[in-house]
Design a protein around this nucleic acid. Structure first.
Length: 420
DNA sequence: TCTGGGGTCCTAGGACCC
DNA sequence: TCTGGGGTCCTAGGACCC
C-alpha cells in the first residue's frame, strides 16, 4: 500500500526542540515578528485551543495573544529545511519504504509492499517512533491503495485520537471512510471547485467518487479526474522526487517597505546566493534566472507596481557569481524609482541535473574557468557549513547578510575587503 | 472576394497543494 | 502601522513552421 507521513504542527514542533520548556503552552510561529507584522504560519494544539488560526495577521489577534500568554516565535525556514532533510535520511536508512519522496517540507510519500493492515500498522509505528527518537518531531501516518487514499487515511489519523496517529485504510474500509470525509477536505479539490460541486448535491468524498466520469471530466478536467480515480482505488498521481524539481524560488516580504535600489540589490543578492546554494545541494544547474518585485498590495493608498523579468543562461550554471550577475542586470531592467517595494524574489528555473552537462561543448579555456569556479563555490559552501551560514559571502550581499544562524560568539568579519 | 490543416513551442493565467 | 514562502500542472492563445 501507499503510505503518507505528515509532521504534526511542523514549524512549532521544530522550534520546541530547542525550547522544550514551552511544551504544553500555546506557541505560534510567525514571520516578521520583530515588526509586529506578519501572520501566523503554524501553531500547536494549545494555541488552536485558545482560538488562534493559521493565517491570522498578528495585529488582529494581538489581544488574544497577550491575554492567553501565547509565545510568538519568529520563523526559521532553514531550520525546518534541515530537520526535514534529517527525517528523510533516517527513514531512507531503514529501507522499509520504497520510492520514498519528499512532497513538501513536512510531508512524505512512499510505498510498502504489504497488504496486511496489522503488519502495516506495526511498520508505521516503528517509523513514527524512530522519527520521534531521532528528531523529536511527532508525525501522523496513513496507508491506502493510492496516494490520495493514503493522505485521507492520515487525515483520519490526525482527527480521531482513537487511531493514535496511524490509520490504515484497506479496500474493504474505503467506502465507509470516504462517506465521512467532506468533499472540501479531499486532496485536490480546492475552494473554487466546491461551489460547482455543492450545486450537484455532492457532499462527501464518497459522493464525488460515485459521480459519472464524464461529469467529473467536464467540470474539473484531467486533474479532477485523477483525484476521482484515486478515490476509487486506481493510482493516477505521481509524486515527483526532489531530483526532478523544476525551479527554486527564494523570496521575502520585507518588514519595512523600501524604494532604494541599493537595498533591493543587496537583498536580492542574498536571495540569489541562498538559491544558488540550494541548487548546488541538489546537484542541479539552472538555465534561467528570474527576478520579481512587488509593492504592498494591501496599501491601496500607494502606487502599485509588479514586475518580473527573466534571463536565459548561455551555459547551465550553479555559480553564485553568475547568478548574482544576472540579478544585477535584471534589476536594472525592471527597477523603477518612486515605488515603495514590499516584496522581492529570485527564481532559478529550467533546472537540469548537474550530471547531464556536456563539458566537451566548451573550449579548454572555458573548462578551466568552470573548474576554478566550481572549486570556489565548493570552498564557499564548505566554509559556511563549518562556521555558519553566510560567514563568507559576496561584497554585494552587504554586511547585513543573514546572521540568524551563526554560532554564538563567532565574530563576523568587519570589512568587506576581508571577505574577498 | 474567397483564405487549409497540421504541427511545435512559448507564455500568461488559473487552479491546486503545502 | 502591521497580511507568508514555497511549489506543480493544465489550458488557451499567439508566433512560427510546413
Amino acid at each position: 500500500m501507499y503510505v503518507h507521513i505528515d509532521c504534526n504542527n511542523f514549524f512549532v514542533s521544530c522550534e520546541l526542540v530547542s525550547r522544550p520548556e514551552l511544551r504544553g503552552t500555546p506557541v505560534v510561529v510567525a514571520n516578521n515578528n520583530d515588526n509586529n507584522g506578519g501572520i501566523i504560519l503554524a501553531l500547536n494544539q494549545e494555541a488552536k485551543a485558545v482560538g488562534l488560526q493559521r493565517g491570522n495577521p498578528i495585529f488582529q489577534v494581538k489581544q488574544l495573544i497577550e491575554q492567553q500568554h501565547v509565545t510568538v516565535i519568529d520563523v526559521h525556514h532553514h531550520l525546518y529545511h534541515d530537520i526535514s532533510g534529517h527525517i528523510m535520511e533516517e527513514v531512507k536508512k531503514t529501507e522499509m519504504v520504497l520510492d520514498f519522496v519528499q512532497y513538501s517540507v513536512d510531508e512524505f510519500f512512499g510505498y510498502m509492499p504489504e497488504d496486511d493492515p496489522a503488519l502495516l500498522r506495526e511498520y508505521l509505528q516503528q517509523l513514527k517512533d524512530l522519527i520521534l527518537r531521532k528528531t523529536q518531531i511527532p508525525v501522523s501516518c496513513g496507508a491506502g491503495e493510492t496516494y490520495t487514499l493514503a493522505k485521507t487515511a492520515t487525515y483520519f489519523a490526525k482527527h480521531y485520537p482513537g487511531y493514535k496517529g496511524i490509520c490504515i485504510m484497506p479496500a474493504d474500509k474505503r467506502e465507509r471512510a470516504l462517506s465521512q470525509v467532506a468533499v472540501k477536505d479531499i486532496w485536490g479539490i480546492g475552494r473554487r471547485s466546491i461551489k460547482q460541486i455543492s450545486i450537484a448535491g455532492v457532499k462527501t468524498a464518497l459522493d464525488y467518487s460515485r459521480q459519472p466520469e464524464a461529469w467529473v471530466n467536464r467540470l474539473f478536467g484531467v486533474t479532477g479526474l485523477r483525484t476521482w480515480k484515486e478515490l476509487n482505488g486506481t493510482p493516477a498521481i505521481t509524486i515527483a522526487s526532489h531530483e526532478k524539481q523544476k525551479s527554486i524560488m527564494y523570496s521575502r516580504t520585507f518588514a519595512h517597505m523600501t524604494s532604494s535600489k541599493a537595498v533591493l540589490l543587496r537583498e536580492l543578492s542574498n536571495y540569489a546566493s541562498s538559491a544558488s546554494r540550494k541548487l548546488r545541494e541538489q546537484k542541479a544547474l539552472c538555465r534561467s534566472v528570474t527576478l520579481f518585485l512587488a509593492t504592498n498590495r494591501h496599501r491601496l493608498d500607494l502606487a502599485q507596481y509588479h514586475a518580473d523579468d527573466t534571463v536565459k543562461m548561455n551555459v547551465p550554471t550553479d555559480d553564485s557569481t553568475q547568478i548574482i550577475g544576472a540579478i544585477n542586470l535584471l534589476l536594472d531592467r525592471i527597477y523603477k524609482e518612486n515605488y515603495q517595494y514590499k516584496q522581492a524574489g529570485v527564481i532559478l528555473g529550467d533546472l537540469i541535473h548537474a550530471d547531464s552537462i556536456q563539458l566537451d561543448m566548451f573550449s579548454d579555456n572555458q573548462i578551466d574557468e568552470q573548474v576554478r569556479q566550481k572549486r570556489l563555490m565548493k570552498a564557499i559552501d564548505g566554509i559556511n557549513q563549518r562556521f555558519g551560514r553566510n560567514q563568507i559571502h559576496f561584497a554585494i550581499q552587504g554586511d547585513e547578510a543573514d546572521t540568524s544562524e551563526q554560532p554564538a560568539g563567532f565574530m563576523r568579519p568587519h570589512k568587506v575587503e576581508d571577505e574577498k
